Measured scan of single mutants.
Amino acid sequence: LTVEVTLDGRRIELHGLSEEAHEILRHALERNADDKEIKKILEELRK
């Protein structure tokens, strides 16, 4: 799955996400998580 997010003013596409990762990010974006929170989530998903 692919998600497009804006971090530090740049639009980035995240490819190859699992369903779980996609859901976690989608929920964070829906509640307008800040860049710091999104980065933390991405860091966790990379593990």
Rank of each mutant, 00 (worst) to 15 (best):
L1R: 06
K36T: 12
E13W: 14
D35P: 08
E23Y: 10
L45W: 08
A28C: 04
E43W: 11
D34P: 13
I38A: 01
T2M: 12
G9T: 02
K39H: 11
E44C: 12
A28E: 01
I12A: 02
L14F: 08
R10Y: 15
E19K: 14
E44D: 11
A33Q: 04
V5Y: 04
E13R: 13
A21T: 05
R31Y: 07
E37A: 07
D35A: 07
I24P: 01
E4S: 13
H22Q: 11
R26E: 05
L42N: 00
L42G: 00
T6L: 12
D34L: 08
I24D: 02
V5S: 02
H15Q: 08
E20S: 11
R31A: 10
I41K: 01
I38D: 00
I41D: 00
K36W: 11
D35Q: 12
R11T: 14
H27G: 13
T6W: 15
T2C: 08
K47D: 13
L25T: 00
I24G: 02
G9M: 01
E44A: 11
V3P: 03
G9N: 04
R10C: 15
D35L: 07
E44S: 09
D8M: 02
R31F: 06
I41V: 04
I41Y: 02
D35I: 10
L25P: 00
R10D: 13
K36E: 14
D34C: 05
L1C: 01
K40M: 13
I24T: 07
D8R: 03
V3H: 05
T6R: 03
H22V: 15
V5A: 03
G16A: 05
I38T: 01
E20Y: 13
I38C: 05
H27W: 09
H27K: 14
E43M: 10
A21P: 00
A28K: 01
R31C: 11
G9R: 01
K39Y: 12
I24W: 06
E30F: 07
A21V: 06
D8N: 09
L17Y: 04
D34A: 09
V3M: 15
E37V: 07
G9L: 02
E37P: 00
D8S: 04
R26D: 01
R11L: 14
D8H: 05
L25G: 00
E30N: 10
E23K: 13
H27E: 15
A21E: 14
S18F: 03
G16K: 03
L45R: 01
H22K: 13
K36R: 12
T2F: 09
T2K: 11
R26A: 07
E19F: 14
E13M: 11
H27C: 10
T6M: 14
G16D: 09
V3K: 02
A33P: 06
N32L: 08
I24Q: 09
I24V: 08
R46M: 15
E13V: 15
L45V: 06
G9P: 01
L29Y: 04
T2I: 12
A28V: 04
H22I: 15
K39N: 08
A28F: 05
I12G: 02
D34M: 06
H27R: 15
R26H: 06
L1F: 15
L25A: 00
E30A: 11
L7V: 10
L42A: 01
G16M: 06
K40S: 12
H27D: 14
E19D: 10
R11Q: 11
K40H: 12
K47Y: 15
E30W: 05
T2N: 07
L17Q: 01
K40E: 12
L45D: 01
G9W: 04
S18A: 04
L1V: 12
I38R: 01
D8I: 01
L25C: 00
D8Y: 03
A21N: 06
H22D: 04
D34E: 10
L42Y: 04
A28N: 01
H22C: 14
L1I: 13
I12Y: 14
E20W: 09
L7G: 02
I24K: 10
R31H: 10
E44G: 08
G16C: 08
R46L: 15
E30L: 11
T2W: 11
K47C: 15
R46F: 15
L1W: 14
V3T: 06
L7D: 03
L1S: 07
V5F: 12
E4A: 12
E20Q: 12
R26G: 03
A21Y: 07
R10N: 14
S18Y: 02
N32Y: 09
T6Q: 08
E4Q: 09
L14Y: 06
I38V: 07
E13S: 10
I12P: 03
H22Y: 15
E37S: 05
K36V: 14
E23V: 08
V5I: 15
E30G: 07
N32S: 07
N32W: 08
G16H: 08
R10L: 15
L7I: 13
T6E: 12
H15D: 07
K47L: 15
L7E: 04
H22T: 11
L42R: 00
R46H: 13
G16N: 12
I12W: 13
E20M: 08
R11C: 12
L7A: 03
G16P: 02
I41W: 03
L42P: 00
I41P: 00
N32Q: 11
A21L: 05
E44P: 01
K39F: 12
I24M: 09
T6D: 07
L14I: 15
I24H: 05
D8G: 08
I38K: 01
V5K: 02
E23N: 13
E20K: 12
E13C: 12
S18C: 01
E23I: 09
E13A: 07
L45G: 02
R46G: 15
V3L: 13
V3E: 04
A33F: 07
K47A: 14
D34N: 12
A21C: 06
K40G: 11
I24Y: 08
G16S: 06
L7M: 09
E37G: 02
L25H: 00
D8V: 01
A21M: 11
L14W: 04
I12S: 02
K47T: 13
H27V: 12
E44H: 07
E4H: 09
T2Y: 10
L29N: 03
K47P: 11
E13P: 05
R26F: 06
L1M: 11
L42W: 04
E37M: 07
A21H: 10
I12E: 06
S18N: 07
D8P: 01
G16F: 09
E44I: 11
K40W: 12
D8Q: 04
L14N: 01
E23W: 12
L29A: 04
L45S: 02
T2E: 04
L45E: 01
T2L: 07
K40T: 08
G16Y: 07
N32G: 13
V5Q: 02
V5W: 02
E4D: 05
V5R: 01
A28Q: 01
R10P: 03
R46A: 14
L14D: 01
E43A: 11
E44T: 11
R46T: 14
D35G: 09
E19T: 12
L1E: 06
A33T: 04
R11M: 05
E20I: 11
R26Y: 08
T6A: 04
E20A: 11
K39S: 09
I12T: 05
I38N: 00
R31T: 07
H27F: 10
G9E: 03
L1P: 04
L17N: 01
G16R: 03
L42V: 08
H27T: 13
N32A: 06
A28Y: 05
K39M: 14
E19W: 13
V3G: 04
S18E: 04
E30D: 12
L17V: 04
A28D: 00
L42F: 04
A33C: 09
I38G: 00
A33S: 04
R46V: 14
K39Q: 11
L29F: 07
T6K: 04
E44M: 10
K36I: 13
E19S: 11
E23T: 08
K36L: 13
L14Q: 01
E20F: 08
D8T: 02
A28M: 09
H27L: 14
K40Y: 12
I38W: 04
H22W: 15
S18H: 03
I38F: 05
L45M: 08
H22L: 15
L25V: 07
R31N: 11
H22S: 11
D35C: 06
A33I: 05
E23A: 13
L29V: 10
L17F: 06
E43C: 08
R11E: 09
R31Q: 10
G9A: 02
L29H: 03
R46N: 14
V5E: 02
E19M: 13
K36P: 06
L1G: 08
E30Y: 06
H22E: 09
L14G: 01
R31W: 05
N32P: 04
R10H: 12
E44Q: 11
L7P: 02
D34S: 10
D35N: 09
L42I: 14
K39L: 13
H15A: 08
R10T: 13
S18D: 08
L42D: 00
K40L: 13
E43V: 09
R26V: 13
K40R: 10
L14V: 12
K36H: 14
E20L: 09
L42K: 00
A28P: 00
V3A: 06
E23C: 05
I41M: 05
D34I: 05
L25N: 00
E23F: 10
D35V: 09
E23S: 13
A21F: 09
E23M: 13
E13N: 08
V3R: 01
L29C: 05
R31D: 05
I12F: 11
A33D: 03
L17P: 00
E37D: 06
E44Y: 12
K40P: 00
D34Q: 06
G9I: 02
R11W: 10
E4R: 05
D8C: 14
S18M: 03
T6S: 06
E13Q: 13
K47H: 15
L42C: 03
R11G: 06
E44W: 14
T6N: 08
L7Y: 04
L45C: 04
E30K: 06
A33Y: 08
A33G: 04
L45N: 02
G9Q: 02
T2H: 08
H15I: 12
E20N: 08
G9C: 05
K39D: 05
